[in-house]
């Protein structure tokens, strides 16, 4: 059975690109367009991995991670942050909230995202 990835991201073009790339590799990708929606979807979908943007409407990525920490089950799901910024302070905070990895969008490309995903949950 295909591994499930939840993509929490508000930018359509990124959603389109990542969805394409990951689906092509055989993952089952579901999408949430803000933090609140993301938490909801997590409970429904029970993904194997969450790709999480930080700056989003309604609830940001940090809020999502805080929400996950409060839930015994959600806490176990690995999170890879994909963000436009990457301040050391932010990185530390994400790490404390259980994020496995952090990708800065301008420094990485979809292929590298895929590699990180594979590293976390396998093909």
């Amino acid at each position: 059975m295909a591994k499930k990835i939840l993509l929490v991201e508000d930018e359509e073009i990124m959603i389109g690109l990542l969805q394409k790339k990951l689906t092509k590799e055989g993952y089952e990708v579901s999408v949430a367009r803000d933090g609140e929606e993301g938490l909801k979807a997590m409970i429904e979908v029970r993904p194997d991995l969450v790709l999480l943007d930080i700056i989003m409407p309604k609830m940001g990525g940090f809020g999502v991670m805080e929400g996950m920490q409060k839930d015994k089950e959600l806490k176990k799901i690995p999170v890879i942050v994909i963000s436009n910024s990457g301040q050391p302070v932010e990185l530390d905070k994400a790490q404390k909230l259980g994020a496995k990895d952090w990708l800065i969008k301008t420094e990485f490309d979809p292929q590298e995202v895929l590699n990180k995903v594979v590293k976390q949950i396998g093909e």
Binding site: E11, I13, L17, N84, K105, D109
Partner: peptide
């Protein structure tokens, strides 16, 4: 920061 968002979208699209 605002500029980086579209730039990364362009980067990813071109890369793909």
């Amino acid at each position: 920061h605002q500029l980086r968002t579209p730039l990364s979208a362009i980067k990813w699209t071109l890369k793909m």
